[in-house]
Design a protein around this nucleic acid. Sequence first.
DNA 1: TGTTGAATTTACAAACATTTTACAACTCGA
DNA 2: TCGAGTTGTAAAATGTTTGTAAATTCAACA
Lengths: 119, 119
Amino acid sequence: MGPVSSHNPPYRDEHLAVDFDRQAAILDDERMLLTRKEYDLLSLLVRHAGEIIPREALLMQVWGYGGDIRTRTLDVHVRRLRKKLGGYADHYIETIFGIGYRFQPFDAPRYIHPTAVGA
Amino acid sequence: MGPVSSHNPPYRDEHLAVDFDRQAAILDDERMLLTRKEYDLLSLLVRHAGEIIPREALLMQVWGYGGDIRTRTLDVHVRRLRKKLGGYADHYIETIFGIGYRFQPFDAPRYIHPTAVGA
DNA sequence: TGTTGAATTTACAAACATTTTACAACTCGA
DNA sequence: TCGAGTTGTAAAATGTTTGTAAATTCAACA
């Protein structure tokens, strides 16, 4: 009956789930209220979980910006997205300095920065 | 066997019931006095409870409007419908900004993931 | 440690969408 | 035809989203 074909297998981990067909993201069983751009951004990052996506690629795919555009729009949207991801924000969305961003699944192995190690 | 077969199973939840065969809606045991358009709109939304229905789809199915028509008629009817739904209005009829509207059952399950959890 | 370029954060306004009110046009039975 | 109820539209009010500027914080490196 349901002709609602599921072309895109949903993403799911310990805390976050993204249903690409319904264009919905659920964080700890609570639906996230994302704006279009926020969803587009999260969606793209999640589809490429674990991969680093350069700024230019994000600006190209989410905003359609080509060439060398100088804008902070991407950063601001990443911030808005992080805010809605609550405490898991920095866990999920990594900043790759000088390159772009990367979405990491909840249980992805983390790189321990030498400077962050104490004792 | 009654010739008046019931092809459409009625909708029912804590406060609202819709009998598609009789084209009647009952809110807290009180029959709603809906106009044709109001009923058509509510009916369509309820039949697709939980799903987001784009403006274009509503304008197409309830009004027969095709293409890209710019009108606020839909919004006004949603308002009239909400008014008659009383206090449950915003609970039942959600506005999906930039997309359309969605009817949510009273006990709206926050989200049901495609793959059943547990068991 | 100071310099430099990048990212973050805040605030704001422009763009865009919905809600609300009011009213005119239409429908349909008495 | 009349009139009550229904429907569509315009326009203002309200609300939301988005992009940008500017100040601040951060990271890399000589």
